[in-house]
Amino acid sequence: MSDIATVRRRRVRSTGLLIGVAIVGGYLLAALFAPWIAPAGPHELNVADALARPSAEHPLGTDDLGRDVLSRLLYAARVDLALGVAAAVTAYVLGTMVGLVSGYAGGWLDLVLTRVMDVVQTMPVIVTIMILLLVIGRGPVGIVVALALAGWVGYARLARGTVLAARNLDYVAAARLAGLGHRRVLLRHVLPNVWTHGVVFLASDIVASVGAIATMGYLGIGLEVSAPEWGRMISAGQAFLATNWWLSVAPGLAIVVLGLGLALVSDGLTDRLTDRLGR
């Protein structure tokens, strides 16, 4: 590819990254400042004003109990984002650690750990989550733990692969020869190579986590609290799809736009990373 084309492509990509960061930042701000931005409280009932069409007072209308949909959407961002990010980050840390140990140790430990990864990946994520929720329970912590235990394998494989490549590099061998212990070599010399790759994956994994939380909310098998949640809003609105379609479509769009933002971030980061590595 010509240099000009490369530069142009890179510029398009960094614009994409910028847009992505702006979208994700917007969500974070909305979630953080929901109590100040939202026109009403998430549980404020007004049955007389139920199923109102969008208006200046209620930009996205009201639901069947007369609650302001925009406000609920903003408050739901807190639940979905907090749980989604917490689950993805937990999976990232857990998976990277397991992959690090597995790749660095080798031998029987590596064999056992990769087998465990195979087993976990054999079942669909949603099925694994459901089984874990049966055991752990459906509180916020339970949801985060179940999602993380179902989703760590991708990170572990990524980390393990990077470690296997890094293990034989000269500077790692030099660190060992210099008499450094395994722990120090792992954390100081191998880990810095590993975590950056995981971060790219993390951005797209947050989308998957939020999607899983919303899916469970929609199916009525998710979080057992009264706080508004995007998935539950979609299923609650489904009964009024013929007349008030925005009740279901608005929370769905909230998820889709967040997904798009995170995909742009992930893509942009990949580009930055490969540029830095000179590939």
Binding site: S204, V207, G211, A214, T215, Y218, L219, G231, I234, Q238, L241, A242, W245, S248, V249, G252, I255, V256, L258, G259, L260, L262, A263, L264, D267
Partner: peptide, 22 residues
């Protein structure tokens, strides 16, 4: 595909249901 991957499948289902069944 980036748009498609960001959409939870249940939401695609609800939208299709709305458009082509209702």
């Amino acid at each position: 595909p980036m748009v498609g991957l960001g959409m939870p499948s249940f939401w695609i289902a609800v939208v299709l249901l709305f458009l082509f069944a209702l």
